[in-house]
């Protein structure tokens, strides 16, 4: 039961226009059967302050991650989670969130590991919906439980592990963190040692393109031409490249993964979710400091 695609002209320039919906489209389809809207935020309380009517909450920290092992939930865990949220395998899942859809893109990437057939992002996310004074609700929707099948997670296509990154050294990589994190110069005040990694810097060869550059002022994705100027022009990437993206724990880089893979159509893009909190703590891996790749 796939819902119709959004025909917004801006989207048609992207490689996969069907991956995005506009706030107008969502407002129009909000009551359609077969659609579930899920909010995934950086701030864990934001959903409770008011959300798109009928939207369920999807929390990256407590729901998408395994509580013990540093990994995502497995097939059984994902099936249980989706079923509880009222999401079936044939549901059109529209994700949105705060901060330019940063966490929503992360949730979309995780859903892709399980091959969810129809998952889309709300262009502009929570900020645009609110800015347009569209309705919000504090009611928690009581969605009937769905029967989501157990699907084995596929980590081979869009996910990279540390060993994959070591084998990839010398090939295109994008570090999407802030310039300060990239150079390794992060502010390091006396009483507040920077936690998360023992070493600062970046993976040798990785170029620095902060993730939020892909978003416009209103939190929507920049038009294709502008994205091409950033990733193809400045960073020199081409669709034929095998690209790995990373950040601190793989959330911000999910956003860049979405841009490169779905909006620009690069076929081979993997997200290294171990990211700097793994690389910067690993023994004897190469690190580069400073502003050069």
């Amino acid at each position: 039961m796939t819902l119709p695609y959004d025909a917004t002209p801006k989207f048609q320039d992207y490689a996969r226009p069907e991956m995005l919906v506009s706030t107008e489209w969502l407002a129009e389809h909000l009551d359609d059967p077969g659609l579930v809207v899920a909010e995934s935020d950086e701030d864990v309380l934001l959903y409770e302050t008011g959300h798109i009517p009928g939207a369920v909450k999807l929390d990256w920290h407590t729901e998408l991650n395994d509580p013990v092992t540093r990994d995502y939930v497995d097939g059984a865990g994902f099936a249980r989670l989706m079923s509880e949220k009222g999401i079936g395998r044939d549901t059109t899942l529209v994700l949105y969130g705060d901060r330019n859809n940063w966490w929503a893109a992360y949730a979309l990437w995780v859903a892709t590991l399980f091959g969810h057939p129809d998952v889309r992002l709300l262009d502009g996310g929570r900020a645009k919906w609110i800015a347009e004074n569209r309705p919000v609700s504090t009611e928690t929707p009581g969605r009937p439980r769905a029967g989501y099948p157990e699907v084995e997670r596929d980590d081979t296509q869009i996910r990279a592990f540390r060993d994959d990154v070591q084998a990839h050294l010398g090939q295109p990589m994008i570090d999407v963190r802030s310039p300060g994190e990239y150079t390794g110069e992060l502010l390091h005040m006396p009483d507040y040692p920077q936690e998360g990694a023992l070493r600062g810097g970046h993976i040798p060869g990785a170029q620095n393109v902060p993730w939020a550059r892909a978003a416009a002022e209103d939190a929507t994705f920049r038009p294709r031409k502008e994205l091409e100027a950033i990733y193809g022009g400045e960073a020199g990437l081409s669709p034929a490249d095998d690209v790995i993206v990373y950040c601190r724990i793989g959330e911000r880089s999910s956003h860049t993964w979405f841009v490169l893979h779905h909006l620009l159509g690069y076929p081979a893009v993997r997200n290294y979710d171990g990211s700097w909190t793994e690389w910067g703590n690993s023994v004897r891996v190469p690190i580069t400091q400073g502003d050069k790749p």
Partner: peptide
């Protein structure tokens, strides 16, 4: 800001 309710909390 209001869009940071956890920090406000």
């Amino acid at each position: 800001p209001p869009e940071a309710p956890t920090t406000r909390g």
